[in-house]
Computed example of a mutant assay.
Amino acid sequence: MERRNEILQYIENRPGVTFRELARELGVGIGDLQYHLHRLEKEGKVFSRKIGKKRYIFPKGFKKEYEKLIIAISTETRRKILLLLMKGPKGQSEIAKRLRLSQPTVSYHMDELVKLRIVSARKEGKNVTYTLSYNPSVMARVIRDYRPSLWEKLADNLIDLLTSVGDKND
């Protein structure tokens, strides 16, 4: 029972944690974790969403409107893409160039973001332009509230960027 409470508390503190992350972070065996999650789901204390090959676990009462956003920001590449799109609509080739990613990698992640309805795609001839479907301030609030370590990392990246710009102007 103590182990189950530990699992529940972790999920409440990190909604949208993947099954594998949860097992790794808590040092719980796969079978043991499956058992406890099954019990927690049966008791109505948690629920999960399977997207692709990953299973994301949320505490009871988590806001449905934020589920997809939490899933989207759980991947570093997608986070970078979303941050870039916060500055305005971008084409696939511009995203690939700016983030130093291959076209197929960008295409894969954009397809996933479109499926999640975090991003919308508009085809113009051979080019596709992507636009953020979420209000950037909502995204920032969700990151700050549910992924504080990510928020700190983003703040550190911003400080590094501003410092490097300041050095070039001296």
Rank of each mutant, 00 (worst) to 15 (best):
E21P: 02
T18I: 01
P104Y: 07
G88Q: 03
K45H: 04
G61L: 03
L83V: 07
I70F: 08
L40G: 01
Y56L: 07
Y66C: 05
E94Y: 03
K42N: 10
Y66V: 04
E94G: 06
E21G: 10
R98Y: 08
E25Q: 11
L101K: 14
R20W: 10
K68E: 14
I11K: 01
A23Q: 12
L82E: 07
L8I: 04
K97L: 08
Q34S: 14
S102E: 11
K45P: 01
F62N: 05
S93R: 15
T18W: 11
K90Y: 08
V17H: 02
L84P: 07
L26N: 02
S74F: 09
T77K: 13
E94A: 12
E25G: 01
F19M: 12
A72M: 05
K64Q: 14
E94N: 07
R100P: 00
K63F: 12
M110G: 07
S107F: 08
E41A: 14
T75L: 10
D32M: 10
V28F: 07
L40K: 03
Y56V: 10
V46Y: 03
L37N: 01
I73C: 02
Q92L: 14
E25C: 07
G91L: 02
I70A: 07
R49V: 15
H36C: 00
L99Y: 09
V46I: 15
I11M: 05
T75V: 07
L82R: 00
L85S: 01
G29V: 01
K53D: 14
T77F: 06
F47P: 05
I11Y: 01
L83W: 09
M110S: 10
E41P: 02
I7G: 01
E65W: 02
R79K: 09
M110F: 03
K87Y: 05
G88M: 08
G91Q: 02
R14A: 12
R14Y: 12
E76V: 06
G27E: 06
L99G: 08
R79V: 09
M110R: 04
L85W: 04
K80D: 09
R78N: 07
I51F: 15
K90F: 11
I7V: 15
R100W: 02
R78D: 02
G88V: 03
L84K: 08
S107H: 14
G31Q: 05
K90G: 00
Q103E: 13
K50S: 10
I51Q: 05
I51W: 13
I81H: 06
E43T: 00
P15V: 07
I70S: 03
Q92H: 10
